[in-house]
Computed example of a mutant assay.
Amino acid sequence: MSIVDPDEAARRLAADDPTGWFERLYAAAASGAAVVPWDRGGPHPLLVDWLGERELTGTALVVGSGPGSDAELVAARGAATTAFDISPSAVAAARERFPGSSVDYRTADLLAPADEWRHAFDLVIEVMTVQSLPPSLHPAATASVAGFVAPGGTLLVVAFAASDTDGPAAGPPWPLTRAEIDAFAAGGLTEVAVEWLDHRWRAEFRRE
């Protein structure tokens, strides 16, 4: 069996198809012809650390949920959790991986989200999703993520970090600059904390 190099496949596909390549990769992974490079077999460590021992209430949305591990962690802490991915194969794989899960897994497009999701979630988790899109799509994707946060709600963003003086990245991913992290505060969100942790951003915002 020939295994596809997922990074090379991503670079080729993203050049002409900035969102459709996710489905191609997840479909190939489902057939055993590829591996998903960001499937770490568990929730992201920076999300785990941020949550600590806290219990959650209210509603949560996990953006670009992929394998589902982040969504399952958030749900296990008590939040009524919705998770979405643009890839139907990713959603199917998450449901299969976590049978009986309380997470509401859906297929949806970050760049064209459901109207009822606007200002609808008490906690929004964005881990490495905006950075997977070409920089020209970052402003629209960022605004969409920020728009999910309900009044009084919190947004957590985790992304690879780039300095404002770095040259263009070959991508994907396309690491986010500090200016791009700050852009999540548009539309009524307030910055709570922005941390640089081992070349990654972990940023928290709140809608007052």
Score class of each variant (00 low, 15 high):
P99Q: 09
A34K: 01
A185C: 08
G41K: 14
G20Y: 01
S136L: 12
I125T: 02
A108T: 00
T57L: 15
R106K: 03
S132K: 04
E195Y: 00
A193L: 08
W50A: 15
E53K: 10
Y105C: 05
R178S: 09
A161N: 05
A161D: 08
D166C: 04
Y105V: 04
L13P: 08
V194L: 03
A150I: 10
T81P: 09
G42F: 10
G152W: 11
V48F: 13
T59Y: 14
A150S: 14
D122K: 05
A143E: 02
L155F: 06
R118P: 07
R11D: 06
A169W: 15
L61F: 03
V103R: 04
A90V: 00
G187C: 02
P175E: 01
A93L: 06
Q131I: 11
F184E: 02
G20V: 01
F84W: 02
D198Q: 15
T165F: 11
A114M: 14
A60S: 11
T129F: 05
F84G: 00
V63N: 00
R206F: 11
E53I: 05
A146F: 02
R11G: 09
G171S: 08
G147M: 13
S65A: 13
I181F: 01
A140C: 04
F98Q: 07
F205Y: 08
A27M: 04
Q131L: 08
A114R: 14
T82C: 04
S102V: 09
L46H: 02
I3Q: 13
R207K: 11
V63I: 06
G171I: 07
M128D: 10
P113I: 01
A159M: 09
D7G: 13
G64D: 04
A120I: 09
W201G: 06
F184R: 01
P135L: 11
A146C: 02
A186G: 12
V36I: 15
G68Q: 01
H199Y: 13
A169C: 13
V192Y: 10
P6Y: 08
Y105N: 01
